[in-house]
């Protein structure tokens, strides 16, 4: 069935709520209003106000109360109206949720999800890509889908997982990306990368919106006879190192792309793993394409200058393949 990325996420949540009465939703304006992006439109009517809770603007209380409910056998799905606002609940996620399994051996099955990313002319506070913070936090799983089918399957897997999951939905993909999505129950296990384009000359490792930038760049350089492989890692934690290494061993070249800023981004981690475990296969230095180290700005000209794009990726592919 053809669905947008946004519809696919909503479909996964709806099916899980029908299947498992322990699941409830909580967030700001998710009930009557259906969410700022209308992802939970119709949920209040179907599931009622006990399972679709409009909360005060209190990210720490929302995430904290969800942790408490998860400790008590529920499986909350928390919406951050924009993923940027997770900073207001950061302590709950990182300090409490991320350490509970380790300290108490008790599961905290919850998903904190919301729209992240730029390219839509928002501003520094509605555009951030903060996934690397959580990959660095310990005890949190981090999911960044790029396609509609993955968005559905990874959401279902996240909701069934016994660990806290931070689920980054790219707002620029919500309605732009549409694809065939399996109907009914569909699970994509966490920690499995997906080779979205087969190629011989160079591997691009990407996730989220960067996968689409990489696909466009690959089409561009294909005209010049450069055959690019693209690995969508899909989840940062768990990280499917093996699929990445396998691709690099085949193509001998690696470029990592993410929309988040360069310094201390997850690309650095991937580069280090490749250098550590596939060094002898490399014919070129591992390159990274990422955002300029700045907040995501408002004006379109500035935003385009800060965020990565397919032209920069194509140039980096050419450079890497010239070795």
């Amino acid at each position: 069935m053809q669905m947008t990325y946004l519809e696919a996420i909503a479909d996964a949540i709806r099916l899980e709520m029908r299947r498992d009465e322990r699941v409830f939703l909580i967030g700001e304006d998710i009930g009557t209003y259906g969410g700022a992006f209308k992802l939970t439109k119709g949920f209040l009517d179907e599931f009622g106000s006990k399972r679709v809770i409009d909360a005060p603007i209190s990210e720490a209380a929302i995430i904290g109360a969800s942790i408490g409910a998860a400790l008590n056998g529920m499986r909350p799905v928390v919406e951050m109206q924009f993923m940027d606002f997770v900073t207001n609940g950061f302590n709950q996620l990182v300090t409490v949720a991320g350490t509970t399994a380790y300290r108490w051996s008790i599961p905290v099955p919850m998903v904190v999800r919301g729209p992240s990313g730029g390219g839509v002319g928002a501003n520094p506070f509605h555009s951030r890509n903060s996934e690397a913070w959580f990959a660095h936090a310990t005890g949190l799983k981090v999911v960044c889908p790029a396609f509609a089918d993955d968005a559905k399957g990874l959401m279902a897997a996240s909701m069934r997982d016994d660990d806290p999951v931070v689920f980054f939905e790219h707002k620029g993909l919500y309605r732009k990306i549409k694809g065939e999505v399996p109907e009914g129950e569909y699970i994509v296990p966490l920690g499995k990368a997906r080779v979205v384009r087969q190629g011989m000359h160079c591997s691009i490792i990407a996730y989220g919106s960067a996968v689409h930038m990489a696909l466009a760049a690959a089409e561009e350089v294909a005209k010049e006879g450069i055959d690019v492989e693209i690995v969508d890692i899909r989840t940062l934690v768990p990280f499917d190192e093996e699929t990445v290494l396998e691709s690099v061993r085949k193509t001998h070249r690696a470029i990592i792309v993410h929309e988040a800023v360069l310094t201390a981004g997850f690309g650095g981690e991937i580069a280090a793993r490749i250098a550590d475990k596939a060094f002898s296969y490399l014919d070129a230095p591992v390159k990274r394409v990422a955002a300029f180290d700045a907040p995501t700005p408002f004006a379109p000209t500035l935003e385009q200058a800060v965020l990565p794009n397919s032209t920069v990726i194509a140039n980096t592919i050419r450079q890497t393949c010239s070795f």
Binding site: G64, A65, S66, A69, I106
Partner: peptide, 30 residues
């Protein structure tokens, strides 16, 4: 924490467990 005894402990970040305690009761209220 000892869930069998219905004790859930603390973290060093003061106040962080108060919303968690509220949520524990909320789950049962549901």
């Amino acid at each position: 924490a000892d869930p069998a005894l219905r004790i859930y402990g603390n973290v060093s970040h003061l106040g962080a467990m108060i919303p968690v305690a509220a949520g524990f009761s909320m789950a049962d209220a549901m």
